[in-house]
């Protein structure tokens, strides 16, 4: 898992890949071989059924990453791979959080959820399930605040990105 002090070395890589079995293994191998730890990985359909989209966040030194991207681009099933910053692309992520409440904490947690635009998906057995979408930072922030109460479970989708303007992701 991500170490907080390493945050500035977190990179977001987006790849357009052929929609074939084994592509994920090929790409994961390129990262693993250079000792790069993948923090999140999203594989999803793209705008055409032939291709899939992979969005990877990983941490490590930028020079190694540059080499990894070149190696990934070499894979026959990778159409293109590139790194994206906050500047050139919009970033988004979704989280589901299950939090336990009591009579006293219920209104506080509800207020907090409202502040973070989190949607209540379920309320049973004194447990809320919230859905929150937004930047990784906003999700982190909400999580930290909720942890003061009792977070039972959390699931995050991992970050997805899209390049701004005419350029393709």
């Amino acid at each position: 898992m991500a170490q907080k002090d390493n945050k500035k070395n977190i990179h977001t890589i987006s790849m357009l890949v052929a929609n074939k079995p084994g592509v994920l293994v090929r790409i994961a191998m390129v990262f693993a071989r250079r000792g790069y730890n993948i923090d999140s990985l999203v594989v999803s359909p793209s705008h055409t059924p032939r291709f899939s989209r992979m969005t990877i966040t990983a941490q490590g030194n930028p020079e190694t990453l540059e080499q990894i991207i070149k190696q990934a681009n070499k894979l026959v099933d990778v159409i293109h791979a590139s790194e994206h910053s906050e500047m050139d692309a919009v970033h988004s992520e979704l989280a589901l959080i299950k939090v336990k409440y009591t009579k006293t904490t219920k209104p506080i947690i509800a207020k907090l959820a409202k502040r973070f635009h989190a949607r209540l998906l379920d309320d049973s057995d004194n447990l809320f399930i919230f859905e929150q979408a937004g930047s990784t930072e906003k999700l982190d922030e909400f999580e930290v605040l909720l942890k003061k109460y009792s977070v039972i479970e959390m699931v995050r989708t991992g970050k997805v990105v899209m390049v701004k303007g005419h350029e393709k992701t």
């Binding site: 079995p21 084994g22 090929r26 071989r33 894979l75």
Partner: peptide, 14 residues
């Protein structure tokens, strides 16, 4: 063998 050979081929097919 497709997965075994993956790190040492330029490409492979099953």
């Amino acid at each position: 063998i497709t997965n075994i050979s993956m790190p040492v081929v330029k490409h492979n097919y099953l």
